[in-house]
């Protein structure tokens, strides 16, 4: 007991002194606090070094393939054949050439498709939740959305495989269409469309939660002023609240995109597991063609790690994923930074 009191005193006194003189600045910290501070500092430094170490590791492993393939890694296809070839020749120099265009296209298409879904339907949900929802319904709805955001992706994959894929193959793909396309790609329901639907279900809740938070934190006085001037509620939402919450909404979309890009298991289950580049010339059939994303390629082909060329190719996919995640997180920093400085303060 006595010791505790002593410690308290020793903390308080210098503070008083500093506040009166204003000159003796910092109070001396107790030894224990210093130690803890140093440990925390070390841990912070260590974890940031770890991130750089991961990047260095992934990229260094990817270099053999990236170097041998050059730009054709991004601009040419034939991944599955390349991979089989690399596996069978067990990594001769010729086997280091990979073309990941279908995979990159698959990633971009599924993610952007899901984002379009999110920005339309998700934004509607967010507006409803934060502006129009009756008070008694808001709590349960909000907690449901948050719960949905926390469901592991493999569950969404299963739902996609059991419900979405059979639905597409039954109702959207006719036997004639499938016959006509069989030489180009197998249409069996596992498709770009299934991927987009499953991804939207997955990232939708994240986006809705973030966007409704952003809308709620739009300055109240804007809304009040707008309503006082006689604008309708709808007009206020569209013209005043949404622009004020724009940065937060965009930041939410970017976070959702980050999760979509990295999603592997769920997409590997529903998008068709073949490195196929959908052809826009096929019209709407484009959406029914199978694709495979960078992340699900890593999962599907992980077995090949024992051959150096295959390993390097998978790390090349990984380095692209890493790069896009870094870019996205930079974007989201810019936008969330603007959110804090732009407009007026919350109060």
């Amino acid at each position: 007991m006595g010791k505790m009191e002593l410690e308290n005193v020793s903390v308080i006194i210098p503070e008083k002194a500093s506040s009166t003189t204003g000159f003796f600045t910092k109070p001396r910290k107790p030894f224990k606090e210093k130690i803890i501070e140093i440990i925390l500092l070390l841990l912070t430094v260590l974890s940031s070094i770890l991130i750089f170490f991961v990047m260095f590791f992934v990229i260094s492993k990817a270099i053999p393939v990236l170097k041998a393939s050059g730009f054709s890694f991004v601009f040419s296809g034939g991944w599955d054949e390349n991979f089989l070839n690399a596996w069978q020749t067990s990594g001769e120099q010729s086997a280091l050439k990979f073309g990941a265009l279908p995979l990159i296209a698959g990633t971009v298409l599924t993610t952007s498709g899901a984002l379009v879904f999110c920005l339309t339907f998700g934004l509607g949900c967010a507006i409803f939740l934060s502006e129009m929802c009756p008070a008694w319904l808001r709590k349960p709805l909000e907690s449901t959305v948050r719960l949905l955001a926390a469901i592991p992706s493999v569950i969404y994959g299963l739902i996609g495989l059991m419900i979405v894929v059979p639905f597409i193959s039954k109702h959207l793909i006719s036997n004639e269409l499938s016959l006509r396309m069989i030489k180009i790609c197998a249409l069996d329901g596992t498709s770009l469309l299934a991927g987009i639907i499953v991804l939207s279900m997955m990232i939708g809740p994240i986006f809705i939660a973030m966007a409704s938070d952003a809308i709620k934190s739009a300055p109240k006085i804007y809304k009040e002023a707008s309503l006082a001037l006689g604008l309708s509620h709808w007009r206020t939402i569209v013209k005043i609240i949404l622009p004020a919450a724009r940065n937060g909404i965009v930041a939410g979309a970017i976070l959702a995109a980050g999760r979509a890009i990295g999603e592997a298991i769920a997409l590997s289950m529903v998008t068709g597991s073949v490195a196929n580049l959908p052809n826009p010339a096929h019209g709407l059939v484009f959406f029914l063609e199978p694709v495979r994303t960078l992340a699900s390629t890593i999962v599907d082909n992980a077995e090949g790690m024992s051959v150096a060329a295959c390993e390097s190719a998978l790390f090349a996919c990984g380095s692209f994923l890493l790069l896009s995640c870094v870019l996205l997180s930079l974007f989201s920093r810019i936008f969330s930074g603007n959110l804090r400085t732009g407009g007026v303060s919350d109060k």
Partner: peptide, 26 residues
């Protein structure tokens, strides 16, 4: 010869069985 390029590539026996069980033409 290589397997046809349109072939779906699965990572396990279970997934192949599941895919065949789920599609009449597989």
């Amino acid at each position: 010869d290589n397997v046809v390029a349109t072939a779906k590539q699965h990572a396990s026996n279970g997934l192949v069985r599941q895919a065949v069980a789920g599609n009449e033409n597989a």
